[in-house]
């Protein structure tokens, strides 16, 4: 089994659709998706990320950022197990936020 990282970009509910009911439905979809990945033995871990951040460069110079547009903001990541890229990508068919212009970057984790 190989390990992959799913990096979630954008995908926020549009502001006029941020109703309690829609949030409930969205959370339900995510929790069901994660449950499914767990039951099938793919899910390893995942974390949400706060917006904003710091960038550190040479000489320990710290700047705020990255300032990216809404659709590019990274909201969180998963580590999953899959046979190969094609299986990893197939796990994303249940990703709940395509309709909200969300995209997922898939990266394979390098082995020792």
């Amino acid at each position: 089994m190989e390990k992959f990282m799913f990096i979630f970009h954008g995908g926020q509910l549009p502001s006029d659709q941020q109703t309690p009911e829609n949030m409930q439905v969205n959370m339900g979809k995510w929790l069901a998706w994660i449950d499914k990945l767990k039951n099938e033995g793919h899910y390893e871990s995942g974390e949400p990320l706060l917006p904003g951040g710091k960038i550190v460069s040479k000489g320990n110079v710290v700047t705020d950022g990255p300032f990216v547009e809404g659709k590019d903001v990274v909201g969180g990541f998963f580590i999953v197990k899959a046979k190969d890229y094609s299986e990893a990508v197939s796990l994303l068919k249940d990703y709940p936020d395509y309709a909200n212009n969300g995209t997922v970057q898939v990266r394979q984790i390098m082995k020792m």
Binding site: Q12, Q18, P20, M27, P48, G76, F78
Partner: peptide, 17 residues
């Protein structure tokens, strides 16, 4: 409240309630 619930959604949907 809106900001609070959005934050909750982003957190809970990955970490659980």
């Amino acid at each position: 409240v809106q900001d609070t619930l959005i934050t909750a959604l982003q957190n809970w949907r990955i970490q659980g309630i």
